[in-house]
């Protein structure tokens, strides 16, 4: 008998920090050297949600790949999605909205969670507080994160993992 395994996908515009969040969560490292993801990057992480062990297979999908056809393909079998936005770029919030709508429409069973990344860049922060409040009111799980400092990263992933276990 083995622990359950779940596939989750990281979606969002390019350069919002999907891979950085992934590396921070899996390896607890951060690199300022930006390297764009080509296609998909896959890592795994064993997490404990309460007493339950869970293995996450994380598909870090390139921001440029977020076309409907590719999304459909990559999302097959996925149980959860982390929608990543860059708090310093408003357009990434819009992309998160679009992705959420897409998931609601085509994959309504997928658990989602939203991470507003780059929380360490307070001076450049553009995400309006009302956007956050409004999404939470709709029942979204929204978490401010910083891949650089690690703030909120673990919580964001674990929150999604707990949703997965609740099934």
């Amino acid at each position: 008998m083995t622990d359950p395994v779940r596939k989750i996908c990281l979606l969002g515009s390019f350069a919002v920090g999907k891979t950085s969040l992934c590396q921070r969560f899996v390896n607890n490292v951060f690199s300022t050297n930006y390297q764009t993801t080509v296609g998909v990057n896959i890592v795994t992480k064993q997490v404990a949600v309460g007493q339950q062990q869970l293995k996450l297979v994380i598909w870090d999908i390139a921001g440029e790949s977020a076309t409907p056809a590719v999304l459909k393909s990559y999302l097959l079998g996925s149980q959860g999605c982390l929608l990543i936005a860059d708090g310093t770029r408003l357009e990434t919030l819009t992309e998160v909205d679009r992705l959420h709508s897409y998931l609601q429409q085509h994959n309504p069973d997928i658990a989602t969670s939203c991470l507003l990344n780059k929380a360490d860049l307070d001076e450049q922060w553009e995400a309006p507080p009302e956007w956050l409040v409004e999404r939470r009111e709709r029942g979204w799980m929204v978490q401010r994160t910083s891949a650089m400092t690690g703030a909120g990263v673990e919580q964001g992933f674990i929150e999604l993992a707990s949703q997965l276990l609740k099934g």
């Binding site: 008998m1 083995t2 622990d3 359950p4 395994v5 596939k7 996925s78 149980q79 099934g167």
Partner: peptide, 11 residues
């Protein structure tokens, strides 16, 4: 249903 299998899974 492996992707949604709850609890311990058979090997």
């Amino acid at each position: 249903n492996f992707h949604t299998y709850q609890g311990q899974q058979p090997v």
